[in-house]
Design a protein around this nucleic acid. Structure first.
Lengths: 337, 337
DNA sequence: TTGTACGCGTTATCAC
DNA sequence: GTGATAACGCGTACAA
């Protein structure tokens, strides 16, 4: 029923080896025979079985992708960039949700290895010993996206400068006259989007001799619901900050929702700054003042870096690529001066 | 370097056949030998090579998923449901973006077939002749999600009742006193979320002897930007409707954004109704009055239906499952009476 | 119950 | 240049 290389060989009256050679152009074949083979291929509508091919080549034209949560806009847009670039190069993405759990990450990493993926793109909260160990044992091309810790030059990485971005965002608020600023961060165990942004925030405060208020600080999980819950918490204290910086647009939206329920107007009574600039940040009312990451590009470039690594194979120079961020001013923040 | 079944066999002093048998429990093996084998397996940390296994079994523990656009909240949430259910059953999802293009769909479908996926879940704008032909030639278990046309009982389908849902939404607006109602639909070439909702809308109008106004009707593409553009178009006419029904929450958000830019207040000057009830619909200001689909559940159940189909293999009774929808009243619509 | 040997569909290594 | 044939790692008739 299924047409194999053997059928083609018979039809073209040559050996399977020859068929393989013309299909892969791995060895010179005389033009006449090449013709015969190609004709047979077309007539039979043959296409090589990728599974059999994988088994012998230890390749699959598959790119494994580890994602904490695909239903998070930041990740899904990034994945689009990733996927589009892969498609151009004939690769297909094997997408796996990890919930940020290292166990699941490892589970999928092992699966990917066994599936002979040609490379892996990892989105994880922080580089862990387990990751390092895995890739020491299994030298698979990999790039960590939205992550700056490259394990001391062990891995390719691509990210924005989270620290600086948070610093810039906070400085922006300060420049606009805010002195009592709250923070809704990600989990501080996330070294990048969690801790780095937290640190950038504190640094900006320090440099301007402003206090960091524990009571107006909370760790969320980037999603809208945590923004809502943490927002209610912070906003229902008897004293309120004049501005809150959120580590994701989604949390900012949740927080604004909370403010609305309590009856606090944004930005009149409190300013809210987001992070990411997801597509909805502009349509949201009030339009979110936020830090723009080139999300799609982050994904596309991660894919490109991976392709390069796959090509060069050995002696590949690992690099850490930092993409620019940008403050986008809309309506959710008020100028106090 | 890599441990194979052969290594295990040697270590356990049995044949590879025996090892295979205890691992797959395909044939009875004496308890003592079973022990020996399992010990060897654990000591060596053996796990079967899925590629080799696929080659011989024509199975892969892979579920192919066709998605128009993963960066669309409706789809990404649905995929989460899908993925979570698959994971429980040891399956991994091979996710592919199609942009709704039949060429890409077919491309990926062929790839999936060659990868020996155990089943496929398809999200597509409408069932086409090409789909039917493909599955006639390749009898792979499949379920169409968010789609009601099951090709006359050929396929498993799961969806809500799009027609009725749009009818209900429109009736709701009418009940609230709206008589001049606009429509921002999806592409009418989409039989379900496009045409069915359009039809439900018109039916409700007709039944209440209300006019359908071409000038307040536009076809969008579900995304936020098309909502914005079409919204500007509709709202800048010299006469305006009192309400607009949108075929997706995202478009509703884009439309509200447009209204805001023009200076039209929602819901005071115009009511906007969405569709889907994505997570952000509640946090959005004003909270979106919308039609809730059980999105996550849609994905999870689609997966379950597929699993069932995979198990039963032949003589599987195809079904069309309709999940309930529900009007969620929030703030984006005004009662005129 | 257990072992031998072949097949799955390719690519790669030999000879010729 | 071209053709046998041995891998790749596993499941499974068939024989024992």
């Amino acid at each position: 029923m299924k047409v194999t290389i053997k059928d083609v060989a018979e039809r073209a009256q040559v050996s399977v080896a020859t068929v393989s050679r013309v299909l892969n152009q791995s060895k010179p074949v005389s033009p006449e025979i090449q013709d015969k083979v190609m004709r047979a291929v077309n007539e039979l509508g043959f296409n090589p079985n990728p599974v059999a091919r994988s088994l012998v080549m230890k390749k699959s034209l598959l790119i494994g992708v580890l994602i904490p949560n695909i239903a998070n806009m930041f990740f899904s847009v990034l994945v689009r960039g990733l996927e589009e670039e892969c498609y151009k190069q004939q690769y297909t993405t094997l997408l796996c949700n990890t919930n940020g759990e290292i166990d699941k990450e490892l589970h999928y990493l092992n699966l990917m290895k066994d599936k002979y993926v040609d490379g892996v793109v990892i989105l994880t909260s922080s580089l862990k010993e387990e990751h390092i160990q895995f890739f020491e044992e299994n030298p698979i091309p990999v790039v960590f996206a939205s992550q700056s810790n490259n394990g001391g030059g062990m891995f390719d990485c691509i990210n924005i400068d989270d620290f600086q971005a948070a610093y810039d965002a906070t400085s922006f608020l300060i420049k606009w006259g805010h002195k009592k600023i709250g923070l809704l961060s990600g989990p501080l165990t996330d070294m990048e989007s969690g801790f780095s942004r937290y640190s950038g925030f504190r640094k900006a405060l320090e440099e301007h001799n402003l206090d960091f208020y524990e009571k107006w600080f909370s760790e969320g999980t980037y999603d809208i619901y945590s923004g809502f819950l943490r927002g209610k918490e912070i906003l229902s204290r008897k004293e309120r900050p004049t501005a809150i910086f959120c580590a994701s647009d989604t949390m900012a939206m949740g927080l604004i929702h909370a403010a609305d329920e309590i009856g606090i107007r944004v930005p009149d009574e409190i300013s809210v700054m987001g992070f990411d600039d997801i597509p909805m940040a502009e349509a949201f009312r009030p339009g979110l003042t936020t830090v723009r990451q080139p999300i799609f590009e982050l994904g596309a470039k991660a894919a490109k870096m991976l392709m390069e690594q796959i090509q060069k194979k050995s002696n590949h120079k690992k690099q850490l690529k930092i993409l620019p961020h940008e403050i986008v001013v809309r309506k959710s923040c008020l100028k106090l001066l």
